[in-house]
């Protein structure tokens, strides 16, 4: 019973994380120009990098989101997710330290401002993500994998 509860909650977290990324990517895809401006607003990236991020990040998020949703290559997708989240969080921390009054760009146009709240939100997501990675064996049995 206890184990079942654990499995269900882990699966639930997996779905929440999946929808979060899918939602975020769709918001970004809807308006790549707004996304470009919000990355540029961090003022650390050269134009080429901004354009490349606008090009790749939403799609990467979308695919990782669907990977999580359909339990496909879960471990790797979780690591990519973690990598993206850590990068985003570091950016927000950087922006807060620098005292920038900008939107994070996390959800395209409907983003919230960078600030401590945003950092805590991100840390929570990272924490949950790490929990999933650590309890990977529980989720693994349902995973779709080509090699097995």
């Amino acid at each position: 019973m206890k184990l079942k509860l654990k499995t269900y909650s882990l699966e639930f977290i997996r779905l929440v994380l999946a929808f979060l990324f899918i939602l975020a990517s769709i918001e970004k895809l809807k308006n790549p120009f707004a996304f470009a401006l919000s990355i540029d607003a961090y003022r650390i990236f050269p134009e080429f990098f901004v354009n490349m991020s606008v090009l790749i990040i939403p799609w990467l998020e979308l695919f990782v989101g669907f990977g999580l949703l359909f339990n496909y290559k879960l471990r790797l997708n979780l690591f990519v997710y973690l990598f993206l989240m850590v990068t985003f969080t570091l950016l927000v921390v950087f922006a807060v330290i620098k005292g920038l009054d900008i939107e994070c760009g996390c959800f395209g146009e409907s983003s919230s401002k960078v600030g401590l709240k945003k950092i805590f939100e991100n840390l929570l997501i990272i924490l949950v993500n790490v929990i999933l990675i650590r309890n990977f064996s529980v989720l693994k049995k349902n995973e779709i994998s080509e090699r097995e």
């Binding site: 401006l37 790749i56 990467l60 990782v64 290559k73």
Partner: peptide, 29 residues
Amino acid sequence: LASILFFPIVFSLVYNFIVYKDFNFLARA
């Protein structure tokens, strides 16, 4: 890892090429 990165990159290139023609998002924004 390559297989996970491959599809997003290909999709993004194709999609953005069809919809926006070029990739100068920032300049246009």
